[in-house]
């Protein structure tokens, strides 16, 4: 039961992007299409889950003063792995995500969870926390990406939905990302207010 709470926290209550406002850069930059959003979500999830696992496993041997450099080394190891794996197996996706793959290393979600959760909790809980946070991140990315792709390119996952000429190109340009996330947050505020 406890594990389910760990899972749930990342999805709704402490959703990293829409609630805590961290991990914003990749969320806005690569969410031009649903496919990119899922690719970025998967890469970040891999790093987050494994860094949580390793940090929780070694937490008893890590001296307090130098924990941050140690976390960063662990995270950058996994980022380098996923960077090269994606370059080898999904070169096109790797190209469209560009500099944002190596930048996963400074995604505040990952260092934040290592410091706030994995460093203080057992391995299994930390892995579940990582899965929950990853799902929350991927869902936020997917919802922004889908809205932008539908409105901006008239398609979803690359399948055309309506006449492309009717699409508002500004939605896949940078301003579209800011507008979409602004309205999503306002919507979340409104829904939550009604629930209470």
């Amino acid at each position: 039961m406890k594990l389910l709470t760990e899972l749930n926290r990342g999805l709704v209550g402490e959703n990293p992007v829409l609630r805590l406002m961290i991990g914003l850069c990749p969320a806005l930059a690569v969410s031009t299409s649903a496919i990119n959003a899922i690719g970025m979500g998967a890469a970040t999830s891999f790093v987050l889950i494994f860094s949580n696992l390793v940090v929780a496993a070694i937490r008893k041997f890590v001296p307090d003063q130098i924990r941050i450099p140690i976390f960063i080394i662990i995270i950058s190891t996994f980022v380098t792995i996923i960077d090269y794996v994606m370059q080898a197996y999904t070169p096109e996706l790797h190209k469209s995500l560009g500099v944002f793959i190596p930048l996963i290393v400074v995604n505040c979600i990952i260092l934040g969870r290592a410091e706030a959760f994995a460093y203080k909790n057992p391995v299994l809980n930390s892995v579940f926390d990582g899965i929950g946070m990853s799902l929350g991140f991927t869902m936020a990315l997917l919802s922004i990406g889908s809205v932008r792709e539908i409105l901006g390119a008239g398609s979803l996952f690359g399948y055309p939905l309506f006449n492309q000429l009717a699409a508002a190109t500004v939605m896949i340009l940078p301003p579209g990302a800011f507008i979409t996330i602004g309205f999503l947050m306002a919507l979340l505020n409104k829904v939550e207010n009604r629930v209470q």
């Binding site: 406002m21 500004v170 340009l173 940078p174 301003p175 579209g176 990302a177 800011f178 507008i179 996330i181 602004g182 309205f183 947050m185 306002a186 919507l187 505020n189 409104k190 207010n193």
Partner: peptide, 22 residues
Amino acid sequence: PKWFQGYPIAFITAALMSLAFL
């Protein structure tokens, strides 16, 4: 409007600035 106070309006402001920079 109440739902837009805080971060939502900040994002919409940023959208307009980004449009200007385009």
